[in-house]
Design a protein around this nucleic acid. Structure first.
Length: 273
DNA sequence: ACATATTCCTGGGGGC
DNA sequence: TGCCCCCAGGAATATG
């Protein structure tokens, strides 16, 4: 499940490989999750140069030289992987892109087992509207700003707020649980009950956890791999996520699991309050 | 303004 | 070996 560190890892690799490249072919193997669909999608990309690869929240953004943006959301099981030019397509592959810059060429595959992900071509103006709906980027905003985003006098749970992309961008189920554990705060807490000190600890934990994971190229809990097909290394550093019953790394108490906001939620009943 | 349920989808694992 | 059922979940949408 790519969240900010995984999506950012993919973005960096794409930026390195694709910046300045022109799209020379678009082979849609399985239509339905791209917009506009089919031939219109292909025609909107052919001959365009990728000027830059950016990211907003969990969305990867290809900036094209005609001003349009290609938005890619990997959702649960989406993958962007570089493959050989003669790659033989497999069951869940959706689109294969060929790109070139002089003598250099790259073949990029978009595959998605569960088919939740999408690719969408939008204008510069439409992208600005989409981007503005997201909350601040946790690795770019200040701790003060992030703490302030959690200060809403709200009755909703902390976990719900952390998963809400309009509050803070890029956090998903893995990092929501890890952030709460680092900060020593229960995910079930109501926002309105958080002290200023707790909000500051949460904001600080957001940056710490996301930075540490990014340094390990993200977490491969299930399906995630980067553009080279390699897994992220942060799994072994997770302290609560998918560690139900394991001893807490800080105090040895067994990690517990509940369902909160329709999501599996993991916490240490001793370290978090 | 909040929660909760439903929807999309497929593979993997447990139970028998 | 092979069913059946449940589970994983990002985010939009509907309902309470």
């Amino acid at each position: 499940m790519p969240e900010l560190p995984e999506v950012e890892t993919v973005r960096r690799q794409l930026s390195r490989e694709l910046s300045g490249m022109t799209i020379t072919s678009v082979a849609i193997l399985r239509s339905g999750r791209e917009a506009p669909s089919g031939v219109d999608f292909e025609q909107a990309l052919l001959g365009r140069m990728i000027e830059a690869v950016e990211r907003r929240a969990k969305v990867i953004v290809w900036r094209l030289n005609d001003g349009n943006r290609v938005l890619v959301h990997l959702k649960m099981t989406g993958r962007l992987v570089f493959v050989a030019p003669d790659y033989a397509p497999m069951k869940h592959d959706r689109i294969i892109f060929a790109c070139a810059r002089g003598e250099e060429a790259r073949t990029l595959l978009w595959a998605d087992v569960r088919q939740f992900g999408f690719m969408k071509i939008v204008s510069e103006e439409a992208y600005a509207v989409i981007a503005s709906a997201y909350g601040p980027e946790p690795l770019e905003a200040s701790v003060e700003m992030l703490a302030q985003r959690l200060d809403r006098g709200s009755s909703r749970s902390l976990k719900t707020a952390l998963l809400d992309q309009s509050v803070i961008a890029g956090i998903g189920n893995i990092y929501a649980d890890e952030i709460c554990h680092r900060a020593g705060v229960l995910p079930t807490r109501r926002l309105a009950s958080l002290s200023a000190e707790e909000r500051w600890r949460l904001a600080d934990a957001m940056q710490t956890v996301l930075r540490e994971s990014l340094a390990q190229q993200g977490t491969s809990a299930n399906d995630y791999v980067d553009t080279r097909g390699e897994r992220g290394g942060f799994l072994e550093f997770l302290r609560v996520y998918q560690r139900t019953g394991d001893p807490c790394s800080s105090c040895g108490t067994k990690i517990e699991r509940i369902v909160l906001a329709q999501r599996s939620t993991h916490y240490c009943p001793h370290c978090q309050s």
